[in-house]
Design a protein around this nucleic acid. Structure first.
Lengths: 265, 265
DNA sequence: CGTGACGTTGAAGAAGGTCAACCAATGTGG
DNA sequence: CCACATTGGTTGACCTTCTTCAACGTCACG
């Protein structure tokens, strides 16, 4: 029996670590008391593994849990009548991929793993119980959804008003920043695991053109995008080409700027 | 003193009517008790008139009130380094243009009136008081923000994966539907007041191309877009060209599908 | 009756898409 | 361990869509 018990212990420990990452994200913008933080870490959850290119939430499906990304990447997909696909959002480890489903359980777009991905499913029921007891948690979750919305809105200007090179550079800058990669002025590397097809779906381009643009970026000494990793060669240059300004990601909110408005601490 | 008193009465009455429109919007998706509804109708507010093309919320500005559109149209603007502008969202009468500012007061994009517009400013402080007393109000507001986010995500597939004709047709269908214009199968008309420049900024095109596409739509007998109004000639045709499916707008939620999850009624 | 904002049109060019072929890496079954 | 299939990447030739630039038209308003 011992090995099983240890296994369960490890499992619970791992869940808590992943929830901690989500909690950190909330705490970077909102203020929560110790009891509230504990309530989030105590959320029940179970791990699941999703194979690449598999929808795990279908269009118009009604879900009863939110999905915390643990490892890998998830895309939100829509498509037009010709079957042309468009990724409208990308979710990275630590993100709750469909937090909005807590108040709006019917999905308006599909969720698909971009590469093999592990998620932690958190039941809506548990989240609702926590928010009912602690309204400040609802506020923190609402605010988190609003950060996602700000990212959506940048995505619109990206596909609407930037050329292919800028667009892809911006996308790479955003992912590097959200992954908290060490964006030093020189060169650094982060894991990627996304095909050129998927980049095309995110940028609203064809994979053929993505291929050519990536070559261009490589030849200019800005980035080298490989199948498994991205090697940034000139961060400052990439930021300039992508017109990237990380302000909208709201990752660097000072402690005194964090908010708690709907109920006193 | 009488005329003044009547004036004030009318003023208060008018405010309440406008808040009622906002409340109707909330009630179409959320369940609120009589007391909660009353709390929303009692929100303090004051009218303001905005001239066309005037920013009334600047980028990175911190606001202390939300803006309910009473009449006219408001656009959310972003722009790239070359000054190319992109409208990322349009707000119509009955919409709270920056409801998200309640939990996130620093604006990540600017708000500008598209034509002469009157708004009702509702102080954050009052909204916060109402949500603190009634958490279900917070839930309804959060859900409303999520509908806006679903619209943003459709906007991405619009600019990312549709050609100019589809894109503009989709935009017109969305506005007609959100205005609750009588979208009968035949022809009907709705007020517009948006220049071709602004349509171009919304669609991620140039105004020259918008002009040509509008001519094409007119010649196909689908719509006639004038300066002051849009005359839809063949709604079904326009919907087909724009690949428009109003599901994402969530305007037709049945009473039994409306939600109230974070606190009991 | 001018002036400015908006709409309209044409000609030329650039950005990106389409089609098609081929290559490289990985995985799989015999 | 090899033959083959599959997936993703690379490249070229050609074509379409949209942009750019520039001019001119038209309507409303002071």
């Amino acid at each position: 029996m011992l090995p099983l018990a240890v296994g369960v212990m490890n499992m619970r420990h791992a869940d808590r670590l992943d929830l901690e990452r989500f909690l950190d994200r909330l705490l970077s913008r909102s203020i929560l008391t110790d009891a509230e933080q504990e309530a989030i870490l105590d959320l029940p959850a179970h791990l699941a593994e999703i194979k690449a290119n598999r929808d795990f939430v279908g269009l118009r499906e009604t879900v009863d849990h939110a999905s915390l990304v643990v490892d890998g990447m998830i895309g939100r997909f829509d498509q037009n009548r010709n079957g042309l696909r468009q990724i409208t959002a990308i979710h990275l480890p630590g993100d709750m991929a469909n937090l909005h489903s807590v108040v709006q359980p019917q999905a308006t777009s599909a969720l698909q793993a971009l590469s093999i991905t592990t998620i932690l499913r958190v039941p809506h029921a548990a989240i609702r119980t926590a928010t009912a007891e602690f309204p400040a948690i609802a506020e923190a979750l609402w605010r988190d959804c609003m950060v996602d919305a700000a990212v959506l809105s940048q995505w619109i200007i990206n596909v609407g008003r930037r050329d292919a090179q800028s667009r892809i550079a911006h996308l790479l800058c955003e992912i590097a920043t959200r992954l908290r990669a060490p964006t030093v002025s020189g060169s650094f590397t982060f894991r990627f695991g996304v095909t050129q097809f998927q980049v095309a779906d995110a940028a609203g381009l064809t994979s053929v053109h993505v291929n050519r643009v990536l070559r261009g970026l490589r030849e200019q000494g800005l980035v080298d995008v490989r199948k498994t990793e991205v090697r940034v060669l000139d961060w400052a240059g990439l930021v300039a080409v992508g017109e990237f300004n990380k302000n909208y990601l709201q990752t660097e909110i000072l402690p005194e700027e964090r908010l708690r408005i709907l109920s006193p601490a």
